[in-house]
Design a protein around this nucleic acid. Structure first.
Lengths: 206, 206
DNA sequence: ATATGATTCAAACGCTCGTTCGGTTTTCCC
DNA sequence: GGGAAAACCGAACGAGCGTTTGAATCATAT
């Protein structure tokens, strides 16, 4: 993963993702991080200014792409002559699934993302809300159009529940242990399927 | 909260809960913690042996009670001549809601719990699974009896999703901002209601 | 009242942390 | 191929960390 043909910045971002997921933001030291990335200790501050800013860049690298994929998928669905609630859910969930299956650390990043939510870190929440909040708004509007009987508050509650469940499921927090015979890819695809079916039923409730 | 009539151990546990929720386990230092608790720095190691063990005790204090309440509520439901899926869900969710409304730090603890999940800490996961895993098993059996058409894997998936959504909802991670006019108590009760309805629909899916 | 054990305390231990600083090496353009 | 800019490097900085120590203080039971 940290092959020499990756630039120093890329190697640092990769190692940061890995160690943030495993040990948290405070728990991952720059010494371990730079050793993993096979770069000098001072490289982080040279290239990113500070550890805090490195955290931001780890998120930006993945979320720009994830958000674009989600909005793209949503557009594609909406362009069709007819579509169901499940299709919008898939537009939201499948890009996250795809990211979690990415060979270059996607699964790791999803866990970092879940950690960020759990940390309740105001700085991070603001960063995420400011930079990627509009995506949630788009999806809320799409769901709302499909569920006209639902008032806005009810709708937001349900989307919130889904986002939480998705984060939780993709980050592999649950009690469900993947059986050795099942590949991680299939395990995650199953999780996404179940989540979509579950969420669709939940959204339709009442 | 740290009034002088609380014992040193209790003051430490209270401060630990607060700071673990705010700054994480690694991020909360014993110096800040003991200052908050108004006890000497060495008191943590005197009363708890180590910081790691303090973490365990923070969980034990709350989870013993939560698990007992859940099993008690489940038994009460099952003793009735008839009951619905929602009643079992309520037996699982309402004790968590009650805990989150506890005046002496329950809401704080719920956030600590969510953090523990996110940390993916093997030591903690083992501790939680070993000490409180049987509760999940009881509920799985209860749900299974109400949903005989569901195979075991499907059932476990759905319970997992619900546990994740509950953790996130109670920990207040979501994008939903409580309106100033609404008390936190009502906000959380609403969350629980929505979650129960959503989860019941999800469990019934197919 | 006094002895004994439990508790609290200030101080220090060794260690790791994020960051900084010159100096060296590499890269790239004229 | 020479010079400027970019990148890298080893070493050190002060600060904060969890933990330990040994003495001071408190509580309790005889």
């Amino acid at each position: 993963m940290n092959s020499p043909h990756f630039s120093t910045k890329e190697r640092i971002l990769g190692a940061a993702e890995e160690l943030f997921a495993r040990n948290g933001f405070a728990g991952a030291s720059l010494r371990e991080l730079t050793a993993t990335a096979k770069v000098n200790l001072a490289a982080v501050n040279y290239h990113f200014g500070s550890k805090d800013n490195l955290v931001n860049e780890v998120f930006r690298r993945r979320l720009d792409e994830l958000s674009a994929h989600r909005l793209e998928a949503l557009k594609a669905v909406q362009a069709r002559s007819e579509f169901a609630l499940e299709d919008i859910l898939a537009a939201f969930i499948h890009p996250a699934l795809l990211l979690s299956l990415d060979k270059t650390g996607g699964a790791t990043f999803v866990r970092v993302l879940a950690r960020a939510y759990a940390e309740h870190n105001e700085r991070l929440r603001k960063f995420l809300s400011e930079n990627y909040g509009h995506v949630l708004k788009e999806f809320a509007a799409a769901f709302g159009a499909q569920l006209p009987h639902l008032d806005k508050e009810e709708l937001y509650w349900r989307i919130d529940i889904i986002a939480g469940a998705l984060t939780y499921a993709m980050a592999d927090f649950g009690v469900i242990k993947r059986r050795a015979a099942m590949s991680e890819k299939i395990h995650r695809e199953r999780a996404a399927e179940h989540l979509i079916r579950f969420a669709a039923a939940g959204l339709h409730a009442e």
